[in-house]
Simulated assay, not measured.
Amino acid sequence: MKNSDSAISPAGTLNDVLSIDQHGAVALDPEQRALLASDVSWLEYRAEFRRQMIKGGFLKHPWRSIFEADMIFTLIGHKWLQGEILTLKQVATYFKAFASDVTISRHIDDMVASGTLVRTPDPEDRRRLLLMPTQRLFEIGRIFLQARKEIARKHGYIYDPARASAEQ
């Protein structure tokens, strides 16, 4: 193990067990630590958010893994806001590394049952089913994203698109 006076960096032995007195020496800069704290705050909020959505009857049917569901909702909502409607096959392709086609299909079933998505036949090819968001999805998303903004601000992040584009 490393001495607590020096920074613990990836160059050390990766299998070293860290003792709690070394928590300040891990080689993470303040921005990285803030991101980590933001992620933990988000996890805490996300668990409570799910409980409140179910308790309040906002969701007609709870979904399985909230993290997989969040990824699917984010993808479908974001693409729809950009003018693109996705199919189950497209969503499954995006998440192939994380979940099987069957798992994605079950999530979509849960989302349809919860009233956040609707499967609609593609008018150009009736064999394809388009995944259409409902107003319920965007209301949940609005609440969800407002919380993400507040958590990010709490940890020092400020929306500044002009500065971000200048730094690229």
Rank of each mutant, 00 (worst) to 15 (best):
K55N: 13
R163C: 08
R142V: 08
R106T: 07
P123N: 03
S4P: 11
L137N: 00
P30E: 13
D125C: 10
H61M: 03
V112I: 14
R163E: 13
L75D: 06
G115Y: 02
D39Y: 10
G12H: 10
T134N: 02
S100H: 02
I151K: 02
F95D: 04
I66F: 07
G83L: 07
L130A: 03
S9N: 05
N15Y: 10
A27N: 10
A97G: 09
G12V: 06
L131S: 01
Y45P: 09
A162Y: 05
F49A: 15
L145G: 12
S65V: 03
H23M: 11
S41R: 10
P121I: 05
M71E: 12
S9M: 02
P123H: 07
G12C: 09
I8N: 02
E31D: 12
M53D: 05
P10F: 08
R163A: 15
F95K: 04
I72C: 10
R142F: 11
H61W: 07
Y94R: 12
R153C: 06
Y94Q: 13
D160S: 11
H61Y: 08
G56I: 03
R106D: 09
A147C: 01
L130E: 04
D29C: 03
Y45T: 07
A97P: 08
E167L: 11
T87Y: 04
L18D: 06
I143M: 05
E44F: 07
F98E: 13
Y159I: 04
R163L: 12
N3R: 05
L145A: 15
H61V: 00
S38I: 07
L28F: 09
F67Q: 15
F98D: 12
W63T: 08
H23L: 13
Y157L: 15
P123Q: 08
I140E: 12
A147N: 01
L131D: 01
I54G: 01
A7S: 03
S100W: 01
R128F: 02
Y45Q: 10
E68L: 15
T116A: 12
S165M: 10
Q52S: 13
D122N: 15
H155V: 00
D29L: 02
D21V: 04
N15M: 11
Y157S: 11
H23E: 11
L35C: 14
